[in-house]
Design a protein around this nucleic acid. Sequence first.
DNA 1: AAAATCTCCAACCGCACCCGT
DNA 2: CACGGGTGCGGTTGGAGATTT
Length: 371
Amino acid sequence: MGRPPCCDKSNVKRGLWTPEEDAKILAYVSNHGTGNWTLVPKKAGLNRCGKSCRLRWTNYLRPDLKHDRFAPEEEELIIKLHEAIGSRWSLIAKRLPGRTDNDVKNYWNTKLRKKLQKMGIDPVTHKPFSQIFSDFGNISGISNTGNLNKSSNTSLMSEPDHRFSSSILTATEISCFKKTMHEQVQEYNPTVTHPTSWDFLAQFPIHDTEKLPLFFNEASSSCPSSSSSSSTSTFTQSYYCQKSQAPLISPTCTFTWSEFLLSDPVFSTEFHHQEERSNFDEMLSPTNSSAMAMAQNDLSSCNITSTGSNYRSVCDHGTVGNGLEENNNAAAADHAAYSSSASSFVDGILDKDRELHSRFPQLLDPSFDYY
DNA sequence: AAAATCTCCAACCGCACCCGT
DNA sequence: CACGGGTGCGGTTGGAGATTT
């Protein structure tokens, strides 16, 4: 038995607020202050749910709210805080005077998420997609050195990988991922009707960096298990942790924003002051005190030094995403076998597939429906 | 010019937590 | 301790306006 509704929804007005209704709320609050919102509609002469009145006040009518566009500095802060604490919009909004959690959430969903995607960065995990792909190649300790004959009927996509389902990903996550991959491949190339192996990746040019990010981002964002408010989804998190053989479900990752951004030549030249770098690392490192303290405690207790202008310089430069394949060095050196070129990426995938094929020939059953 | 599609954001929903009784 | 009302929060939706076809 669920909680009873806060009001009789059939008898209260819903939808957009009129100026007259706004005026009534404002008049009521100016006389009585906020609080006990369930009584506000009656006392203010409104045919609205009290909850709706509270929302209207907190998200729109409060006099301290800003209604103008987000400044670049605010944008930077949102991105950094989102990386540190995830979609804790209320905590993020507390760092942005005049902004509500709803404002921040909407701005993230409509602008910032897409911006990161265009830069080649997964907005869920704030990691470069190239790393995600390379880490996927390393999933569950698969060797990078395949020495097998080519096969056109290999099997990674043909049957649930027991290693996935038993230790890293749930069957639902795998199914969701595969389905998403299939849908997006078809969107890119409708002639691909039913890919049964990783070989299908070779059917389209991998160098199209506009398309690549979609795979993992959509897979992570569309899976039920990945829609939680945690800072990283279990789905994607598992991939990253495989890289360093860390505990399977653990936020421990070797990647940091500063490493990634420093790998960009333009950014690195602007970001050479040690003090700034130190502050930036502290702000961004998920293992460090400031960010994690925010996740655990009230954000207001944290002292974050924003060095966001450096970050903005990268965003505005616009080369991080498209230039990723060329510019990765220190941060992604161990991923070079996959990310250095399109062909090596595809070859890497195929190698993994072939190796898996040889290890688990029973996965070849073509009748298996991987949905 | 009209229809279709996309973008954006205000508002809603349901759950969880807090706190007084 | 249990219960219930108030509130906070994150995810989702609906629709107005903008843009594209």
